[in-house]
Design a binder for these strands. Structure first.
Lengths: 334, 334
DNA sequence: ACAAAAAATGCAATCGATTGTAAATAACGC
DNA sequence: GCGTTATTTACAATCGATTGCATTTTTTGT
């Protein structure tokens, strides 16, 4: 019952060669059922697990997918951000279900070839990147020579990298339209449009307002994405603004939560005095007081789609970007 | 400028052997400064990155730490649970800072040797497990033969596996004492004591109540850990209980958030009618309305400590369990 | 019972790096 | 200039599995 660590040991024990053991353990048809049984039993008995590194080296696949979170324009942003975390959870579920491991790295894009560190190191079969941050050009460049890569984020015409994300313009439109339907005339947008996704949401928001003839009633506050940083932004805004907005469209649920808190601190009732709509549809929106109305992105579907596309790209197929439908979830804050 | 993929190619190009290239790239003193310069420049120029799998196979280390989340007693629990996620983020920060990758897997312990799947597969140098769930025996058993393993969770006398966690008994005591100090006479504990950590928090809670002569004023509700499942538990409890508790000690912040929402739905003011204390001190507690009082665990320190212990164990040193001090963070809910 | 076809196993190269040791080259003293 | 010691570099084994091909064993047909 000594510890069997390698195929050689097991082979010697059974009086065969490593080739035979390898075939027996992988249910090769080239092996007789009898010896297969015998070797599998022996392996089980001694708790033998083949070394995956060696296998991967030989087969040239690692069984791991890299997940990268580039933190370009928001240094303070943490992996523990609810959005990342939610997406990460879904990805982990999806990947482990298909037999892949998930290699997680947080990257601060400092030197320019931060992506090349990963790609071609042989550790991963493919790459999923959560959020474009402000690195769209780098992503485009790498996408040209590294195929198995999928990015969560906004899709723009002429973009070279494969993305999955919701229709941010439509989503922004829906959010603003909902506020208008609820009677809001003055609307504030909270979010920094230097990120592509947020810029698109703002664009949709403007479109809806223009349609309703309220184009000049919009205020844009480039709030931070990180909750701790967003709160002072918002509190400052609420304290200084002359005409209070009747509706707030926050570019993410995290920003919306900060807004809810700031509003409560100013003694403003939600949705009585101010109505609030977020974006993402995170589960955490169920737990706020009041529960948060939001544009939902169906991140589970997004994760599934990203993994699908990625595996097809790994297999050598062509697979283009996918734009998902956003959905308005009306809860209590509007 | 063709793509150089292996050392052999680079060696041929430079007219040396792979051994020389290997030494040059690893700054070996056995190499002349001149050729080292030359080879390093050549490698840079052609964007050559050594294959990590091959290196790892040879050096017998992988540079990756496995992080496992066993979901024993709560199948519905998701990796996207705020606590996991927060811990995961800190671990990712800490590990990447020390040059390790983080290999994430969610495991549902079905067959008994779920842990052996991981250990000895050669993919990881060490293992961090977040939460004992109801798998303490398995962990003890594996710890006996697999050294580089650290577990987040409760520490009990006679435990074989190395743990990092807060002093749950003390933390529970502090939470209950705080509620008592705030004038609460009837106290409810929300949490399922079949998990070790929660059982210990309850024990501390009872200790404080006994000290104040309130031992018979405690109600225990074995609420689920998952927010979606906890809410009906709690709403049902609040609807059916004859004497409303004045203070609620929730065994986790996630449960506390569900409690806040349920209380709001019943029209109960927090902290006016009912005071609430959570456990974990998650950032998300800053965003609730009202902001949540909680027993903080300093998860960042916990992550640092786990990684420290793990690396020492990998190096062959002995390293025992660490118990961290819990801290009361008073916010607005009590 | 024997040749031919089929099945099972052994042999050895391979994946891409690392590293101990041997060989070749350079540096040095006298 | 030659022997001797230092430096450099080349050679080849190694990590642990996979797999094409050669070889042996078994099965089948007659």
């Amino acid at each position: 019952m000594s510890q069997i660590k390698t195929m050689k040991e097991l082979a010697d024990l059974a009086g065969v060669t490593t080739g035979t053991v390898s075939r027996a353990l992988s249910d090769s048809p080239l092996i007789s059922p009898k010896t297969r049984e015998r070797l599998q039993a022996l392996a089980r008995e001694h708790g033998f697990k083949p070394n995956l590194l060696a296998r991967n080296l030989r087969t040239q696949r690692t069984g791991a997918i890299g997940v990268l979170i580039p933190l370009g324009h928001e240094k303070g942003q943490h992996i523990s951000d609810p959005f990342f975390i939610t997406m990460l959870g879904y990805l982990a579920d999806e990947l482990t279900e298909r037999g892949y491991d998930l290699l997680l790295s947080r990257v601060i894009p400092e030197d320019e070839n931060w992506l090349d560190q990963y790609v071609g190191s042989g550790k991963i079969d493919g790459l999923i990147i959560i959020g474009q941050s402000n690195q769209s050009e780098t992503l485009d460049e790498v996408a040209a020579r590294y195929r198995p890569m999928v990015v969560w984020g906004g899709h723009a015409p002429g973009q070279a990298h494969c993305t999955v994300g919701s229709d941010n313009i439509l989503g922004g439109d829906m959010a603003a339209q909902h506020l208008i339907d609820r009677g809001c005339q003055r609307i504030a947008f909270f979010g920094d449009p230097q990120a592509l996704e947020i810029a698109q949401r703002l664009e949709g928001c403007k479109r809806a307002l223009a349609r309703a003839g309220l184009a000049d009633k919009l205020t844009v506050l480039p709030a931070h994405l990180v909750a701790e940083a967003a709160h002072p932004d918002i509190a400052g805004f609420l304290g200084s603004v002359s005409e209070r907005p009747q509706g707030i469209f926050a570019a993410s649920d995290v920003i919306a939560m900060s807004a809810l808190r700031a509003l409560a601190e100013y003694g403003l009732a939600v949705p009585g005095d101010v109505k609030v709509v977020g974006y993402d549809g995170l589960a955490i929106g169920e737990q706020t007081v009041p529960r948060l109305t939001s544009i939902s992105q169906d991140l589970r579907l997004g994760a599934t789609t990203m993994v699908d596309l990625l595996l097809r790209r790994i297999a050598g197929e062509e697979a283009g970007s996918v734009v998902l439908d956003p959905k308005l979830i009306v809860r209590m804050s509007s």
